[in-house]
Design a protein around this nucleic acid. Sequence first.
DNA 1: TTGAGCATGTAGTAAAACTACAATATATTC
DNA 2: GAATATATTGTAGTTTTACTACATGCTCAA
Lengths: 277, 277
Amino acid sequence: MLNLISDRLADFTSTERRVGEWVLKHPRQAAASTLAEVANATGVSEPSVIRFCRRLGLDGFREFSRRLTEALSQPASYLHSAVAADDTTADVVTKVLDASIQALVSTRAELPSAAIDAAVNALTGARQIVFAGLGASGHVATDACHKFFRLGIPCSALIDPPSLLQFAAIAAPGDVIVIVSTRGAWHESIDATKLARKAGAVIIAVSEPRSPLARAADIVLPCRPAEDTSLYTPMSSRLAQLAVLDTLQVTLALALGEQATDRLRATKQVISSRHRA
Amino acid sequence: MLNLISDRLADFTSTERRVGEWVLKHPRQAAASTLAEVANATGVSEPSVIRFCRRLGLDGFREFSRRLTEALSQPASYLHSAVAADDTTADVVTKVLDASIQALVSTRAELPSAAIDAAVNALTGARQIVFAGLGASGHVATDACHKFFRLGIPCSALIDPPSLLQFAAIAAPGDVIVIVSTRGAWHESIDATKLARKAGAVIIAVSEPRSPLARAADIVLPCRPAEDTSLYTPMSSRLAQLAVLDTLQVTLALALGEQATDRLRATKQVISSRHRA
DNA sequence: TTGAGCATGTAGTAAAACTACAATATATTC
DNA sequence: GAATATATTGTAGTTTTACTACATGCTCAA
């Protein structure tokens, strides 16, 4: 939460920045304050504080307070520390898993439910869903495809630039493209996004929220990559992306109701019966 | 907080007890609700809810909300709870991510470094590494392949039964097969394991530790799947498998020394230079 | 310089939390 | 068993808080 604020501080208006800086400086006080108190302490008007909250992708001041309280009561235990060449195996196990846990914990704290709702809204009416990702994100896209198709929606995965661009060229209204990209900086992804959007498709980016890709997309599901402090540090962001898409799938299943759950049940059943055989 | 409530439940009035029981049953929802919503959900009047808060020694409903939110973001609350059909989006986000976090936390606790060491030992001398996985585990295998090949070892991924069996038939000493399987029950995997082992290959199973596959393998990296309490609960075990393989890769990189780290550096470099372009 | 567009504040509204008090239920004493 | 006292709960109103609509003023471009 605090990271989110400090990251996005740059593209705020001056009043919003003032609020953000104050919150970063007095996080505990901020969490316990009312809207009027924050406005007073920062010397801005109440609506400006609300605008600040909305800018963060939150619903309003209420949600801001809740998120901040959550963030401040989170344990600092799973902190990221770099793997060193002389670490024992037990050290490595702890460090790598802690980094991954941390990635999920911060995702949990920063994922705005409004964005999920918007995404679900787009997906419920979708004619088809296309999951796209290049390189390591390709695996996430494929995985997601494998997961969403069980809901009975036509799904496919595109994991190389030519396919992605070709699809973007023939995209149509009703198509939803979910683009997974850790940094959101590959220009192929961005080009495809712009192209497909012009054609009327909805683009959901699972990506670093301040990236060019995020700016080009309709809906952003933020997935902050952990700083790459070390050569050995693996991409924990991949886990976060998978978890975000898990969440989206479950929410979508709930939104679709009976029909989707029946299909889920059927896909589970067919597996377990094969196992017994 | 929740303990406090359940402890004191006995000396509450019947209305207060009704509120307390509901809060214990739906803690997340309670933390996100307004006074009126709680009153409505429990079928009592608003002042009664306030009296309930006061009875807990709190200032009012506001403080109750804050305390509850704090309590729920403590680490002990990353407990697995099933997604229900009437959950809000925020509930789903929390539940799904909590389940995933829980999977990693328990993996961290249970992963024996001796098994990692044994696996690294086998891998350092490997002529080639083959990652195998069927269904959802196929993605994990592919992902691992993509990750390990950067160390400069020949890697491939097999994600369908015929390929797996064919490879098992021609396996040779020096080959290491890493089989990913959530339940470790597909007989194709087990057959392939036995076959390849007879031919002198080393088999590492990333799987439920008490499964038939685990028994057949040389080395077991335990990955206990979270109980599938609900239809909606996605496979958190997949995340655990990925994290275990992350750990293995980092440990292997350290064991291989200079040469491997140079290669890792090179693969990172080529990506970041493309990004800038 | 003027006008479009954006940032910000003012004033008002809706809703949330809280209070005072009345009504009902429960216990107590004769 | 009746009458009174006490405790419990709800109703109706007040205050506070969060939010909205709109107006003002500022910035930048033509």
